[in-house]
């Protein structure tokens, strides 16, 4: 089980969810979770594939290949660049 948080405007494409996966079995990473989510929600998948989307696991910003364990919280954050 992974708690998945869609921050900011990504929340327009999906509610926060608890994804029922066995992280050890699928060798879960943010990239793998993104693929799973994109299969069910194409529009969300497009947003998550955009350049400079950040991912955080347990409130630490990590890379897309960072290992995720059962019980972790994974957050997707859209890019913010204006000013």
């Amino acid at each position: 089980m992974v708690k998945v948080l869609f921050f900011g405007r990504l929340g327009d494409f999906s509610e926060n969810i608890e994804l029922k996966v066995n992280c050890t079995e699928i060798e879960a990473t943010p990239k793998k979770i993104r693929s799973l989510l994109s299969e069910d929600n194409v529009n969300l998948g497009k947003q998550l594939a955009a350049a400079q989307v950040l991912v955080a696991v347990n409130k630490v910003i990590v890379g897309w290949d960072y290992p995720i364990n059962d019980g972790d919280e994974l957050a997707f954050l859209p890019p913010v660049t204006g000013g």
């Binding site: 948080l5 921050f7 900011g8 409130k59 910003i61």
Partner: peptide
């Protein structure tokens, strides 16, 4: 430390970052 603010939903998220 990065802070994100979502004004539409009134939410904050605070995260640490790691050395690459």
């Amino acid at each position: 430390e990065m802070q994100r603010y979502d004004g539409k939903r009134g939410q904050w998220l605070t995260m640490t970052s790691m050395r690459d």
